[in-house]
Design a binder for these strands. Structure first.
Lengths: 151, 151
DNA sequence: AGAAACTGGTTCCTCTTGCAACCAAATTGC
DNA sequence: GCAATTTGGTTGCAAGAGGAACCAGTTTCT
């Protein structure tokens, strides 16, 4: 309803983008410094630590990352011995991926740090505001994705 | 205060990131389809169209983009005749960059589309929610950036 | 005025990211 | 049961982003 808001800094997509970047950069720094993990790798570990074994296909869905990104992250984690592949008897194309014992150790060490970092990052918001913020994000994303799939 | 929220999809930074990506992708498609502009180029045009002439240095501040990104965007716009460089008499290192007449035409054509697109993208939110959302983003970004600069 | 430090802009190089093509296993349809 | 299609995963390539080094012009200090 505002008559003319033509300043770049008033555009929501712009604000959303720079905010997301600021937060991501900050978090990426922490994960790298503490554990030498990149964000895609951390996401895979988070899902496996929480849900147990999964195929790459399942990880793609759970993390909303590209399948290439998932594949690369898994390879790195496997090379570092944090994750192991076991053959999938039900489907010869895929494997069951799961955290190894050292992987679980790292997971348990990371999780409190991740939560603490999130708390610090969003400490400017009250608990109620955080909940509300999540809800708004969810609705925006749903709208954006719905708008997108109309070729 | 929630005892254990260890699901990836409950992490705010994750939600923020995938939402921002969804919105950015959608918008990038539109700008490319309508005007052949990428987001950095659009941002530069938005600032110049709104504020008038500026140096690259000023554009870096206004857009919060890397100076390399600004430089590249300006070069593209200049090659397309949408932007012109005039010598800066006050400082021989930099130039004053401003939209050309065709550049202004494009700017005026883009702006309503940008606003309409933003409205569509955030139509899931009420006016009040949009205002609130902006405010929350602003506070989060300030916090993230403040946390970051402590080496 | 001249040397040293600084700043705006540009280039170069590296790392990351995503798409498209591809391979192999599995499913479907005759 | 075998050809055709689909699907999970992998590889290769090409574009994007950001950092570091670099150049030219400016400021500061003596």
């Amino acid at each position: 309803m505002s008559a003319s808001q033509t300043r770049l800094t008033d555009f929501l997509p712009y604000l959303l983008s720079i905010t997301s970047n600021a937060v991501s950069d900050r978090i990426a720094d922490e994960y790298r410094a503490h554990f030498g993990l990149k964000i895609p790798e951390w996401r895979v570990m988070a899902v496996l630590g929480d849900q147990g074994a999964a195929t790459q296909r399942a990880l793609v869905e759970a993390t909303r990352m590209d399948k290439v990104a998932v594949n690369r992250a898994c390879r790195v984690l496997e090379d570092r011995g944090l994750l192991a592949r076991r053959p999938n008897t039900a489907d010869g194309r895929s494997h069951h991926l799961a955290l190894t014992a050292p992987g679980q150790d790292v997971y348990r060490a990371i999780m409190p740090i991740a939560l603490e970092m999130e708390a610090r990052m969003f400490s400017a918001l009250s608990a109620g505001e955080r909940t509300l913020f999540k809800d708004l994000l969810e609705r925006i994303r749903a709208q954006a994705e719905a708008t997108g799939n109309q070729p």
